[in-house]
Amino acid sequence: MVAEAQRSKLPWPRTRRARRALTGYFFISPFILGFFLFFVGPALVAAWLTMFDWNMIRPPFFIGLGNFKKMFADDLFYQSLKVTAYFSLVSVPVGLVLSFFLALLMNFKTRSIAVFRTIYYLPSIVPAVANAVLWSFVLNTEFGLLNALLDSIGLPKIAWLQEPEWAMPAIILMSLWALGATMVIYLAGLQGIPRSLYEAAEIDGAGRWASLINVTIPLMSPVIFFNLIIGIIGSFQIFTAGFLITGGGPQHATLFYVLYIYRNGLQYFDMGYASLLAWVLFFLIFALTLLVFKYVGRYVYYEDVGS
């Protein structure tokens, strides 16, 4: 009875465990609040809007499955999916391989390696808009650096951003310029591989190539897998290049999916349809991520669990 009376005098919450939990919640509350206010809330509203025609000026007008019917009959919906898939299918694997190769180079212990690492990392911290402007100069048909190079070896000029067949390769090329961020993640992974494994491989007679295949790549597979997932998600959300450099053209050749969502929402005042497209993108990325986990995840080597 005495202990109970004493406990009742303690401030709420009365147990040490509950107080610790409360403190913890307090400190994570900025994220939790932001998550609910700026992600879950708008996402739920967007889900509700998929059944409405909403021009943002008058109240939403219920149209049932109208937006779904429109989507299945919308050529540009398929075109934007195709364009985004093309970008993803090329830029993600090429980016993964190139950044891995760069990381291997940057992992050599040579003089001035820190300078090279900085140089290769720098493009990834250039703001996306500045990057877009810079590349529109490089890719310029009349005075661009790339065409000057082609001209110097006797090749004809290419209208990189004006011809539909060249616009996407140009944007993929541009996206590869910012490999630095992925490279740094690889580099951190490479530096975590114990030296002793390479020494053991060397004793077993393994050369550089065999060490790469049998030591480096298996031990780096969680990092490669991580970059693959992040790369896929990022590639499906590409927007800036299509918005700023090509405006989705020429002939819808760079009409990325998110750009099409933006246009429907803020240029055509069709926020209900834009919400549906946004949810479709969410499920698409979610499904792709699950597929990658299921079919690629099995090849990932986790040292501590031994599989």
């Binding site: 529109s136 100069f137 048909t141 009349e142 005075f143 661009g144 004006q162």
Partner: peptide
């Protein structure tokens, strides 16, 4: 190519 010049600023 007018659009190429415009893109160049």
């Amino acid at each position: 190519r007018t659009e190429a010049l415009e893109a160049l600023g």
